[in-house]
Design a protein around this nucleic acid. Structure first.
Length: 146
DNA sequence: GCCAACGTTGGC
DNA sequence: GCCAACGTTGGC
């Protein structure tokens, strides 16, 4: 899962413990949260628009997809006039802090490992803010920092 | 259903 | 700040 650290960083999650993952406004990313993410599933926490961008720690799903109520909050930056309580359109999962890496696994690093060749986040134009990660790729990245 | 215009993401 | 790579919108 990608987050801009200026908006929501791994440190914020560490201090808060859990959070709603609101604001996903892309159908593919929503479907992935809704259809795939189960309680206990591990998450690679990625800082986008960061210097450098990369994976900074781990989280896990602590609540499965439920309506993203920020979508019908007119005061929210994630407000969507098409959404309502009756027709939420958007969903979010809740995530729980697991750990912060001692050092970032930067995007540049990621591109250099043949073990994770083809991982979505390393591909050009891969803009999805929620992306599936294979167990093999996940395990490899965790092994780099433990 | 096509596609041009526009908006967003996110690395660089 | 630039711009490639999408995704969305809306006229036709």
């Amino acid at each position: 899962m990608k987050s801009e650290p200026d908006v929501y960083s791994i440190d914020t999650l560490k201090s808060e413990g859990t959070t709603h993952w609101e604001g996903v406004r892309n159908y593919q990313a929503r479907n992935f949260m809704r259809d795939q993410m189960k309680i206990g599933d591990k998450i690679l926490f990625y800082h986008s628009n960061a210097k450098p961008p990369g994976i900074v720690g781990l989280a896990e799903v602590c609540k499965e997809a439920h309506p993203d109520f920020f979508a019908w909050d007119t005061q929210s930056k994630y407000f969507d006039p098409k959404a309502s309580k009756e027709n939420p359109i958007w969903q979010m999962v809740d995530v729980k802090y697991v750990s912060k890496f001692d050092s970032i696994v930067s995007l540049d690093d990621l591109k250099g490992y043949p073990e994770i060749d083809g991982m979505l986040v390393t591909k050009k134009g891969s803009r999805l803010s929620v992306q599936p990660v294979s167990k093999e790729h996940y395990d490899f990245i965790v092994s780099l920092r433990s």
